[in-house]
Design a protein around this nucleic acid. Structure first.
Lengths: 129, 129
DNA sequence: ATCATAAATCGAGAAAATACAATATGAGTT
DNA sequence: AACTCATATTGTATTTTCTCGATTTATGAT
């Protein structure tokens, strides 16, 4: 009830200088607020993609399935590290594993992953200065 | 040169059980490896999206610009917290700020951000069990 | 059953991201 | 000038993620 609300009240006060109908604006902002689970899903998916190793895994799965040991070669990383990233992608529903004997073959589970990779790659990120 | 290479060699050895032409497979994997800067861009973009606050900010900017104080109302978070997230999105090139007097109005800089949000929201993330 | 191998999981230290109070900056106002 | 207000930045405590050796599990071979 203290600083958190103080900050919100201050923000609402400054709204007065921005729009004539503060209440209306707040209502509009509140109305178009996305559903909780939508935002949670989005953050989870992007979190799964927010790592170079995991991006490389998905890119390697573009044209078909690969077994875990192949992905280990792609990443040039220790086995447990690769397995950890594979799990994260699996748990987010972006890839699927198929067990065949001693080997596990992974493939893209949702082609949305590849769309995301392409769109994300096309963003013009300003160089850090 | 020790454990890192040991792990890689082990992975390559296990490849022998997967394909007949190990060298060829490794070459193929190496060739289709995406460029460094592509992966870096992708990870940076998805990192910027990998946060519920930042997702909410972008969703709020869908139908036009909003000033920082409006976004503060949307997030129900302290001013410095909101400013920090705005900076991250700005530095990644996803939003742009326009200063007008005391206020700063933010807008989507790259509509790819909205595409990403929509595609990401449609992914079926299995519930954590 | 024993052994070898591929992959998953565990656990702990290191690194990165986040929250947010405090402070600084910069523009308008008096 | 001094003051007020909106926003940006800084500093630091906290939380989350990442890494990877060690261990376990699962499968096939001898």
């Amino acid at each position: 009830m203290s600083s958190d609300n103080d900050a919100l009240e201050a923000a609402c006060r400054s709204l007065e200088g921005v729009c004539d109908d503060v209440e209306g604006t707040v209502d509009a902002l509140t109305e178009q607020r996305p559903a909780e689970d939508r935002v949670a899903t989005q953050a989870a998916v992007f979190g799964a993609l927010a790592n170079e190793h995991r991006v490389r895994i998905l890119e390697a799965l573009r044209d078909g399935e690969r077994c875990a040991c192949e992905l280990q070669v792609v990443l040039e990383a220790p086995q447990s590290t690769v397995a950890t990233h594979l799990r994260r992608l699996r748990e987010t529903g972006l890839i699927k594993g198929r067990k065949k004997g001693k080997w596990t073959y992974y493939r893209i589970a949702d082609t949305a992953a590849l769309e995301l990779l392409d769109i994300g790659a096309a963003v013009d990120v300003p160089e850090s200065d």
